[in-house]
Amino acid sequence: MTSNPLTIKNLIKAVGGGLTPRMVRHYHTLGLLPPAKRSHGNYRLYTDHDVQHLRRIVALKQQGFQLSHIQKLLATDSMTTTNDSLMTQLQQQYRSVMQYLGRLRQTASALEGLLGRDRECLNIQLEAIDQLRQLEVETITGFAQLEKLWDGLDAATHTHPEEFQESLEHLLPDLSDRSEIEVDLLKKLVLACGDVSLVDVVRLSENAIAAVRDAIKAGCQIVADVKPVFASLDQTRLAHLGCEVVTLIDDPHITSVTEAEHEFWQHRQWRERLQQLNSNCVLVVGYAPSVLMAACEAIENGKLQPALIIGMPIGFSHAPSAKRRLMRSGIPFITSLGTLGGGLLAAIALNALAESLIEKPNCHCYLG
Rank of each mutant, 00 (worst) to 15 (best):
Q125R: 07
L126R: 07
E127G: 11
A128G: 08
A128D: 14
A128W: 04
I129P: 02
I129F: 02
Q131D: 00
L132D: 09
Q134I: 10
Q134H: 02
L135D: 03
E136I: 13
V137E: 02
V137C: 14
T139K: 10
I140C: 09
G142V: 11
F143Y: 01
Q145S: 07
L146D: 01
E147Q: 05
K148S: 03
L149N: 01
D151Q: 15
G152L: 06
G152Q: 00
A155H: 08
A155E: 06
T157A: 13
T159D: 02
H160E: 03
E163D: 06
Q165A: 15
Q165V: 02
S167N: 14
E169G: 12
E169R: 12
H170S: 10
L171G: 03
L172P: 09
P173W: 03
P173M: 11
D174Q: 08
S176A: 09
D177I: 08
R178P: 02
R178Y: 15
S179G: 07
S179K: 03
S179T: 05
E180P: 10
V183S: 08
K187F: 04
K187Q: 04
K187T: 03
K188V: 05
L189V: 04
V190T: 05
V190Q: 03
D195G: 00
V196F: 00
L198R: 00
S205V: 05
E206M: 06
A208G: 09
I209F: 14
A211P: 06
A211L: 04
A211F: 09
V212W: 06
D214C: 09
D214H: 07
A215P: 14
A218P: 15
G219Q: 15
G219K: 01
G219E: 09
